[in-house]
Amino acid sequence: MASTEHALKDAMSSIEGAIGVALVDYNSGMALGTIGGGAELDLNVAAAGNTDVVRAKVRAIEMLNLKEAIEDILITLSTQYHLIRPLTSRSGKGLFLYLAIDKQRSNLAMARHQLKRIEAELEV
């Protein structure tokens, strides 16, 4: 089981092309932890903005009467991928991992696989 700090560091170092990663509480839109990002990507703003994305998708699933959970959400930009992965553990209820990666330097399948592993190991 990994701590938040450890999981975020793990994501930055083990995922090729990682630009930034955050653990976000989508009840408040606030980030519990962030690493990377820097000047070109404000992760606290990304946390707030993507909270609206997750809430909208959760609502859409409810409206469709689907008894399903979101495994992950992929957003493809011109030069980046953004991956959102809600936590499935009981302690992680209402949280999601947010990862931004560089399209050129990354392998999407590997990034998803790594993020899934990191999410499974994370204990909040």
Binding site: G29, M30, A48, G49, D52
Partner: peptide
């Protein structure tokens, strides 16, 4: 249910 991160921003 407000998004506090968004509110701050």
């Amino acid at each position: 249910d407000a998004n506090v991160g968004r509110l701050h921003f």
